[in-house]
Simulated scan of single mutants.
Amino acid sequence: MKILVTNDDGLYSPGLRACYEALRELGEVFVVTPAVQKSGVGRSISIMEPIRVSEVRVNGMELYAVDGTPTDAVIIGIHEIIGELPDLVVSGINLGENLSTEAVTTSGTVGAALEAATQGSKAIAISLEMKDVYKFESFFAPADFSNAKLVLEKLARRVLEKGLPDGVDVLNVNVPERWNGKYAFTRLTRRLYKTRIDTRFDPRGRKYYWIDGVEEENAEEGTDLHAIRSGYVSITPICLDMTSRVDFSLLERWFND
Results as ranks from 00 to 15, higher is better:
129 E>L: 06
203 P>F: 06
137 E>T: 10
49 E>W: 11
182 K>C: 00
4 L>Q: 04
184 A>K: 11
144 D>P: 02
201 F>P: 01
166 D>Y: 10
5 V>M: 01
92 G>T: 11
235 I>E: 07
105 T>V: 14
241 D>N: 15
172 N>F: 05
201 F>T: 12
224 D>A: 05
137 E>Y: 13
257 D>R: 15
111 G>F: 06
155 L>F: 07
80 E>R: 13
74 V>M: 06
115 E>H: 12
164 L>H: 02
71 T>F: 05
150 L>F: 11
243 T>P: 04
183 Y>G: 03
175 V>H: 07
35 A>E: 11
49 E>S: 11
222 G>T: 05
80 E>N: 09
28 E>P: 02
46 S>L: 01
70 P>V: 08
244 S>L: 15
76 I>Q: 02
226 H>P: 00
215 E>I: 11
164 L>E: 01
111 G>A: 12
2 K>C: 00
89 V>G: 10
12 Y>V: 11
97 E>P: 01
120 G>A: 09
55 E>K: 14
172 N>R: 02
221 E>H: 02
91 S>V: 10
109 T>L: 10
161 E>V: 11
44 S>R: 14
83 G>Y: 09
109 T>W: 00
222 G>H: 08
190 R>K: 13
27 G>P: 04
160 L>Y: 06
62 E>H: 10
161 E>T: 14
9 D>A: 15
31 V>Q: 09
248 F>V: 14
247 D>H: 03
167 G>M: 06
238 I>R: 13
23 L>T: 01
179 W>P: 00
104 V>Q: 08
241 D>R: 09
166 D>M: 07
18 A>W: 02
104 V>A: 08
72 D>E: 00
86 P>I: 04
28 E>F: 05
154 K>D: 14
4 L>M: 04
244 S>G: 09
62 E>W: 03
12 Y>R: 07
228 I>Q: 07
212 D>M: 12
119 Q>K: 13
137 E>L: 15
65 A>D: 00
226 H>G: 00
40 G>M: 10
118 T>H: 13
15 G>R: 02
131 K>F: 09
134 Y>S: 07
101 T>K: 13
152 L>C: 09
186 T>A: 03
220 E>S: 14
150 L>S: 15
56 V>F: 01
166 D>A: 14
69 T>W: 09
173 V>A: 09
69 T>K: 00
195 T>I: 05
37 Q>V: 14
34 P>M: 11
